[in-house]
Amino acid sequence: MSDFSWLYDWPAHIPNLLPGLWTAIVITVIACSVGYVLGFFLALMTEAPLRAVRYTAVVIVEVGRGLPILVLMYIAYQGLPQVGVLLDPMPSAIAALTYSAAAYSTEMIRAGLASVPRGQFEAAAAVSLSRADTYRFIIVPQAARISIPPLVNLTITIFQATSLATVITVSEIMHHAYLSGSINFQYMSVYVAAAVLYLSITLPGAILTGYLEKNLGSPTKNARRTSIRKRVTTKTPAGV
């Protein structure tokens, strides 16, 4: 018995799901903003002179990327209480996704930092800029042009992954959708409404990523970036 009423009645379910959308956005914003800062420091650690520091960073990152996010969520919510860390559902989800965001962003940020020519560090050193100022004013702004498009993309992925938090009883979109569906049995309508809400964020996000990939910085900036890189790579530094 086919029923295609969902084709037109899904919008009626949107209001029920909106609180869940808000929750998903809050989780994403916190997880990504904290996660990317951690990712920045992990990226610096992967280049540290001390081997122990580098290895620590690599282990943290590879574990974070190797484990499914669902596993991280169960560990945060149900595993950690056993070692005395008791988190509510929402903080558990945020913790799991923050770790994931940090681990995945590390390589994107590292690639951005590595794209800045060595001469930029030397020029900053030659005018006595402190290390912190060198990163803040010289290196990070240039690295951002490389790192931001993949980070926007990762943010979209993390937003989608908030749906997994339903299994640890966070009332995000899918949690509301499942509850509505189990009351009125219009699962198709409810899930289409949920899908529309996810797409309302992810599609603009994808368009934004594409736009940033093409247009970060003016054409003249792009031209000079390649010219500077060429100059640095073709010349062996300091007659070595």
Partner: peptide, 17 residues
């Protein structure tokens, strides 16, 4: 030492941004 010295590089190394 660096506070007393200015340096000019072959590749200019201006800050492009």
């Amino acid at each position: 030492v660096r506070r007393h010295t200015g340096m000019v590089f072959q590749a200019f190394n201006l800050f492009p941004h």
